[in-house]
Design a protein around this nucleic acid. Structure first.
Length: 606
RNA sequence: GGCCCGGUGGUGUAGUGGUUAACAUACUGCCCUGUCAAGGCAGAGAUCGUCGGUUCGAAUCCGAUCCGGGUCGCCA
């Protein structure tokens, strides 16, 4: 990166981190921050830092005016300084191989303090040990840390790659409004009161979903936006109330068009920006049903196997009352083989069952297969079963075959309603993978999950919910099922991109005809008035030759977090919020003046 | 809203009923011309998140509350 070099008397001619042995003898002017000082009484060393890295600056009284040397003695951490000097090779034996600039140093003959600094509340270094709330309170200092600078740079490069890639595929980047209409379903909206229309509110977009569909009606054909989205829900390590999505939509496409485009984007991006990660192309496809059956999750981590199998029929052969109780109530029993763990002790198994209970499971059964040799040579005493099971080797062999287990492996069994059994066993799956270090941190296992169901039954609200969202089209040929009884069986045209157990993108081929859209709204329980009020504009647009279209919305924060190896989105967002939605730097949210509220015709009652 | 973890000098930690509240580091001063987490000596710095209670006595026990983190619910 060349130094920004404008004006007749530039404050810097080089970046600290770019200087090498090849610069030996050149005169340089640097500007940056004092990272460390080592004052030997005469000679003083400064590690000078700018965004490019560090360089050792030597302040020798023999080369400095008395005034400048006095200045040098006063320097402290994080002072902003400018120095001019000559790059020279370090004396033999004093090179620092841990530093990219370690072969050279800058012998200074002039120094200017650009600004002094208070002693920083924490030391600016990659292995910072300060509490995160302190880092957020002083985020501008936290961002001086090289690792944070690197995260910001990576994020920039990701977004630039996306823009270039989509530009190359004839997409148009179009901005959509931040102040839009509240259409409350799904997440809670952030609301903005209208001053000019007292009592009315804008909402901040949860996503530009309807806007991008309207752009398709407009004939844009290929749209994208690096879009800020807002959802007023509780936070998590991987969830911020405002976050950034690559929002994109295409006309005249079906699933492969969107997914091939996305595969090309992600594969190219990873290979160019973070080649240290191993990826496999083409990305595997997994139907929702397969994902649930084999991994108990619709966003499985595919870096390791640990597959599951339904063993309800085998479980029915046992005399175990728990299994029969569950089966009688329509539940299932699922098994997961854990390779090489058949030798665990009874207390290991009790501990593992405790873990399962922490995930919400009522209990967990297991079979430990011991010994050597082929599976069908299994005899009495070669398998340790949970107390309730008491089954012969012949049954264990069939169970092992179904679960894909061998001698020396462990089989875990979980019983419950299908949804919960999957959830519990999936939790065990990730837990064991972490404990056994099965997931290669240098692999990104991308996969597309397809054929999501159109609807989920919401037991609490006693109504149908969209699995993806109400604009998702039903699978071709299944339209008539919308009039049938079993709505849960209707496949939709929704798809996800998952990676290492995270959902990275979610999209679908949309409905583009009024009649179909109205039927879906009706199934979701909207009255005609509600439909007209919230979605009248988009239904009306469909009446004017809306083209078939579909799209996808990849999360940028999550992608950058994975590429940066960060375990929280806060590490890749410049100014993130805390779990309670606070901005600790600005102190937002905060009370506002009465005058502001009066303008908005708003009164705070609590 | 539920559950779990944390809050002690600037920073990071130790301290489970009586301590001058300990240690490291940062900071301040002095010494020191080849260090790179520089080194040596000296010094200053904490009403232990807040409020209330128990006790002769509380950083320590109890209750409430605030803040930060994780997680479940929630996130079409």
């Amino acid at each position: 990166m060349p130094a920004l070099n404008i004006g007749v008397d530039p404050l810097k001619t080089h970046d600290c981190g770019e200087l090498r042995a090849a610069h030996d003898g050149s005169v340089t002017t640097l500007a940056g921050w004092v990272s460390r000082r080592r004052d030997h009484g005469g000679i003083i060393f400064i590690d000078l830092r700018d965004r490019s890295g560090f360089v050792q600056v030597v302040l020798n009284p023999e080369n400095l005016s008395p005034d400048d040397y006095e200045t040098a003695e006063r320097l402290r951490s994080e002072w902003c300084v400018q120095i001019t000097g000559t790059v020279q090779l370090r004396p033999e034996g004093s090179e620092n191989p841990t530093l990219p600039t370690g072969e050279i140093e800058v012998m200074t003959n002039a120094i200017t303090v650009l600004n002094q600094s208070q002693t920083p509340p924490f030391y600016i270094t990659d292995d910072v040990d300060a509490d995160e709330s302190l880092r957020l309170r002083y985020r501008y200092l936290d961002l001086r840390r090289p690792v944070m600078q690197e995260n910001l740079r990576l994020r920039h490069r990701v977004v630039k790659y996306i823009r270039d890639y989509l530009d190359g595929h004839n997409f148009l980047e179009i901005e959509t409004p931040i102040l839009i209409k509240s259409t409350p379903e799904g997440a809670r909206d952030y609301l903005v009161p209208s001053r000019m229309q007292p009592g009315n509110f804008y909402a901040l977009p949860q996503s530009p979903q309807q806007l991008k569909q309207l752009l398709m009606v407009s004939g844009v054909e290929r749209y994208f936006q690096i879009a800020r989205c807002f959802r007023d829900e509780d936070l998590r390590a991987d969830r911020q109330p405002e976050f950034t999505q690559l929002d994109l939509e295409m006309s005249f496409v079906s699933e492969p068009d969107v997914l091939n485009l996305i595969e090309g984007l992600y594969a190219g991006l990873v290979r160019e920006l973070t080649p240290q990660f191993k990826i496999k192309t083409p990305f595997p496809y997994l139907s929702y049903d397969d994902a649930m059956a084999r991994y108990g999750s619709d966003k499985p981590d595919l870096r390791y196997d640990l597959e599951m199998a339904d063993v309800s029929d085998l479980a029915a052969e046992t005399e175990f009352r728990v299994f029969h109780g569950i089966l009688d109530r329509g539940g299932i029993i699922k098994a997961m083989a854990v390779p090489g763990q058949g030798g665990l002790s009874g207390s290991d198994m009790r501990r593992m069952e405790e873990t399962a209970k922490e995930f919400g499971a009522a209990g967990m059964s297991h079979v430990r297969i011991t010994g050597e040799g082929p599976l069908d040579s299994l005899g009495e005493g070669d398998a340790l079963l949970s107390p309730g099971l008491r089954m012969p080797p012949e049954w264990v062999i069939r169970l092992a075959q179904r679960a894909g287990a061998n001698r020396g492996d462990l089989i875990l069994l979980m019983a419950g309603p299908a949804k919960l059994a999957n959830q519990w066993l999936a939790s065990m799956r990730s837990h064991l993978a972490e404990q056994l270090e099965l997931a290669d941190p240098n692999t990104l296992a991308f996969a597309f999950i397809t054929d999501f169901p159109m609807f989920d039954w919401d037991d609490d609200a006693q109504r149908w919910d969209s699995t993806h969202h109400p604009f998702t089209a039903p699978a071709p040929g299944c339209e008539s099922m919308l009039d049938g009884d079993d709505l849960s069986a209707i496949p939709s045209r929704a798809y996800d991109l998952v990676c290492n157990g995270s959902e990275l993108a979610s999209g679908s081929i949309r409905i583009h005809q009024r009649e179909m859209q109205e039927r879906v709204f009706a199934i979701l329980g909207y009255t005609p008035d509600q439909v007209q009020d919230r979605f009248g504009h988009i239904l009306e647009a469909f009446d004017y030759g809306a083209p078939p279209h579909g799209g996808i919305a990849p999360g940028i924060d999550r992608l950058v977090a994975i590429l940066a190896g960060a375990d929280s989105l806060r590490e890749v967002i410049a100014f993130p919020k805390t779990q309670s939605g606070s901005d600790l730097l600005f102190g937002a949210p905060s009370p506002v003046d009465h005058a502001q509220l009066r303008d908005l015709s708003i009164r705070v009652t609590e």
